[in-house]
């Protein structure tokens, strides 16, 4: 649990970060809250000769709510998501989810950007961002570009981001209707056995739109379009939920680990999704 030696940088602006990334290529990594990266360095599973700390970059901080567009800076901590009044009103699913990440100590340090960029299938923010159809803003030597969260994840720890790009922010339209973030875990500080993010809008007693994403049930977050579609037009009755669960089960691909065998995870995924839909529909 002792990391290898590394050089430490603390630039004041994003340009400084890009310059360092260009200079050191593969040997450099940015660090946000460090609560995924430092454990990996201590286990010597990540070798980072040049560590670039993003703490001092003011441009990466802050939450802005502009009309119905919400932008969250990469360095906003998970803790800030919980206590931001405007955000809790505009997109309450964020605090509901953030409260189920790790524990207060980790949330004071861990950031939205780090959680999204990390690419660990256990992270909760990626699925959540897919549910909200967020756009991820990246800055590289060539300038900025936007990628949909639903397109961003390629495999475990593999994302669309290039090595010399920095995640700047995420942006999404303030969700309407009912929401729920439901997660089963073994204990505080554990990643999900199964988690579901659900947003539902209602019109004339029926589901108008539904967005469903699942976490830690595949090597990437799973936005299940079919599961959402299965609800649309229904009254969210038992039958519709069964159909949504069936569709979701077609999209996930869990593996066995200490949390349990595949059959258990698939079963729990169905239960968790059913509960999430029920709650979101109640709130819609």
């Amino acid at each position: 649990m002792i990391p290898a030696a590394f050089d430490y940088y603390r630039p004041k602006d994003v340009e400084g970060v890009i310059a360092l990334l260009q200079e050191h290529g593969d040997d450099a990594r940015v660090m946000a809250g460090g609560h995924s990266l430092i454990p990996m360095m201590k286990l010597r599973m990540a070798e980072v000769p040049h560590l670039i700390d993003l703490q001092d970059i003011a441009a990466l901080k802050g939450i802005t709510i502009d009309g119905d567009t919400i932008t969250i800076g990469a360095m906003v901590t998970q803790h800030e998501l919980i206590n931001h009044d405007g955000l809790s009103a505009a997109a309450p699913i964020l605090s509901e989810a953030a409260l189920q990440i790790a524990d207060p100590q980790v949330r004071y340090m861990g950031t939205v950007g780090g959680n999204i960029a990390n690419g660990d299938p256990g992270n909760d923010m990626p699925g959540l961002m897919q549910c909200l159809d967020a756009q991820i803003e990246l800055l590289g030597p060539e300038g900025t570009r936007k990628v949909a969260a639903r397109e961003y994840y390629e495999a475990a720890y593999m994302t669309d981001r290039e090595d010399d790009e920095v995640l700047i922010s995420v942006r999404f339209a303030a969700p309407t209707g009912g929401y729920s973030y439901e997660k089963q875990k073994r204990k505080i500080g554990d990643y999900a056995t199964a988690a579901a993010a659900v947003q539902i809008t209602k019109a004339e007693g029926r589901v108008a739109t539904a967005s469903i994403a699942m976490t830690n049930l595949s090597d990437v977050p799973v936005w299940s379009e079919d599961a959402g579609d299965a609800l649309v037009g229904t009254t969210c009755d038992a039958e519709a939920m069964k159909a949504a669960v069936a569709a979701m089960l077609g999209d996930i691909d869990p593996t066995e680990d200490n949390r349990g065998p595949v059959a258990f995870k698939r079963h729990v995924a169905g239960i968790i999704l059913t509960r999430a839909i029920t709650r979101a529909w109640d709130r819609a």
Partner: peptide
């Protein structure tokens, strides 16, 4: 309710960190 040291068939320890080795907190 969960705390164990378990091994796979090759004798690898499967519960070598506090992520998998259950140490309850005030919450549990």
């Amino acid at each position: 309710l969960g705390q164990e040291i378990s091994y796979d068939k090759m004798g690898n320890v499967k519960t070598g960190t506090l992520m998998d080795f259950f140490l309850p907190t005030a919450w549990e």
